[in-house]
Design a protein around this nucleic acid. Structure first.
Length: 477
RNA sequence: GGCGCGGUAGCCAAGUGGUAAGGCAGAGGUCUGCAAAACCUUUAUUCGGCGGUUCGAUCCCGCCCCGCGCCUCCA
């Protein structure tokens, strides 16, 4: 089956083909940098990362643009309060965002586009809308008249035909001619930051940045536009209204939207005290891979209930895969290559691909991997898994990790072993090895008490020992 | 009120018109000096409720109940 996505625009699953063979033009809505972004935001960004990786795995050359909203009401207000320039204020959170993204192993888009660096493109877009008669001004601000765009509502599937501005609305009494109209350019107020334009001093409305930047980087029609469900209306609806009014062409062919994340079954909110940033969670001792796994393992169109129990489960799931990976390299195997196992490995890859092709059904894809791991563990126990099958299995894990990217422990995980007093209790590999030698000697002389004592001490310091037929194996927790 | 999403085992979560993937947790067993890891067995006669269509529905239709989102800034 071909790669297919659920398209919000058509409300159905559609086979994905880009406009141009082999190339995908993708635009995603990035962060508004007025604060540290929270874990719910990262659910969406993780979805976008999985999408990126899968498109690349499927052989597409990606051109992905992500905007950074670095000018809006909140930013201006916060910056003013801290008596900082916009730039000073937003650079802190922009930097933090990309650090967090890297911690979660999110790939960098090909282009990151801060709004304030693209004002001329926005001005150009607005001028074109003005020329085509889609706008009106009021108090120095320029508005988009949605009644001029008959398709308005096609993305969110709302019917606005009944609430068009009519005789009842007196324009003199309202900022906007129609409640649904939105601002393209906001008139300068007081000491707020502003830019000079043919239609007055001011700053851009929120929606215009995405239309202008998307089209200037990617052309008039995008293959994919993605974001969180809350952006469907009005943000994405307005982007369509702006862009298609300018070009007369479809703005984006596939609209993909990630569902929201809840915390312990509740909406995340500051008043409930369940508002977490990535940094909060890392501070509680959770590993980035666990967070990434949890965010990625629930298919993106399903609400994700983020719980601490879920994070622990994620960590255990990763551990199971890592144990299998370790077993592949540390077990002595009979020579040769089991053909049935080679074939089973191919089958696992096919199932994994099928799950991912199915609108990025990560739960289905994961099931393929776990079923495979169980089967292979069995084959190893039975002696049918041969020396050269290592490469077959390694390939399966490699493909899995190309997308999920959770097998390699984070540096943080390696170094952040601290005891209750906050002191580092990490051991070097050499130290661990020497303890293992001491324990082996104790075992040889049947001093099991001493051997168990060493094992327990290592366990306390995050080192787990496993006695196997092929010697002692150890891993860090 | 309008538009939309969802309710599957203790938790997370796939799925199909023909009778329920996977992960975590639990129970029993094999292996082990003991553990750990791994494997085996086991854990929903049942998929929110009630009707309907059908030879047959968790999956299709209708109604109802519950949870949630958007309709104003929001991933």
């Amino acid at each position: 089956m071909a790669l297919r996505f659920y398209n919000t625009l058509t409300q159905e699953l559609q086979d994905f083909r880009p406009l141009e063979d082999g190339k995908v033009r993708m635009y995603t809505c990035g962060p508004t940098v007025y604060n540290f972004v929270h874990i719910g935001n990262f659910r969406t960004f993780t979805f976008q990362d999985i999408l990126r990786r899968w498109l690349q795995y499927r052989g597409y050359h990606l051109n992905h643009v992500m905007n950074v909203t670095d000018v809006d009401d909140k930013i201006i207000a916060n910056a003013a309060r801290e008596q900082k320039s916009l730039e000073e204020y937003t650079s802190v959170y922009t930097k933090a965002f990309f650090e967090d993204a890297a911690t979660l192993r999110l790939q960098q888009p090909e282009h990151v586009a801060p709004a304030t660096k693209h004002i001329p493109a926005m001005i150009d877009s607005i001028e074109r809308l003005v020329a085509k008669g889609y706008t009106y001004t009021n108090d120095g601000s320029t508005y988009y008249r949605i009644s001029a765009f008959p398709d308005y509502g096609k993305l969110s599937h709302n019917d606005f035909s009944g609430i068009r501005s009519g005789a009842r609305v007196d324009m003199d009494e309202y900022d906007k001619a129609d409640a649904r109209d939105f601002v393209l350019w906001k008139a300068r107020k007081g000491n707020e930051p502003f830019w000079e334009t043919p239609f007055g001093e001011g700053r851009p409305g929120w929606h215009i940045e995405c239309s202008a930047m998307a089209m200037s980087y990617l052309g008039e029609t995008l293959d994919i536009h993605a974001g969180g469900v809350d952006l469907i209306f009005p943000h994405h609806e307005n982007e369509i209204a702006q862009s298609e009014a300018i070009t007369g062409k479809p703005f984006a062919r596939f609209w993909l939207h990630a569902e929201h994340l809840h915390i312990e079954s509740q909406k995340m909110s500051k008043s409930l005290g369940n508002f977490y940033t990535l940094r909060d969670l890392l501070g509680m001792g959770f590993h980035p891979e666990s967070i990434r796994y949890l965010l990625a393992s629930v298919p993106y169109r399903k609400k994700l209930n983020f719980t601490f129990e879920g994070l622990k489960m994620a960590a255990k799931s990763i551990e199971r895969l890592r144990d299998f990976e370790l077993r592949l390299t540390s077990t002595r195997l009979p020579p040769g290559r089991g053909e049935a196992i080679a074939a089973r490995s191919q089958e696992a890859i096919r199932s994994f691909e099928e799950g991912m092709d199915n609108d990025l059904n990560t739960a289905e894809a994961l099931a393929a991997i776990f079923e495979y791991v169980r089967a292979m563990n069995s084959e190893i126990n039975e002696g049918r898994f041969k020396e050269e099958n290592r490469w077959d299995a390694a390939r399966v894990l490699e493909i899995f990790d190309l997308i999920f990217d959770v097998l390699k422990p984070s540096d943080i995980a390696l170094t952040a072993q601290v005891n209750g007093k906050g002191e580092s209790v990490s051991l070097t590999d050499a130290e661990v090895e020497s303890y293992i030698e001491e324990r082996s000697a104790a075992k040889k002389s049947r001093d099991f008490a001493r051997a168990d004592e060493i094992r327990a001490q290592l366990q306390e310091r995050g080192i787990t020992l496993e006695d196997t037929k092929d010697g002692v194996r150890w891993k860090r927790k």
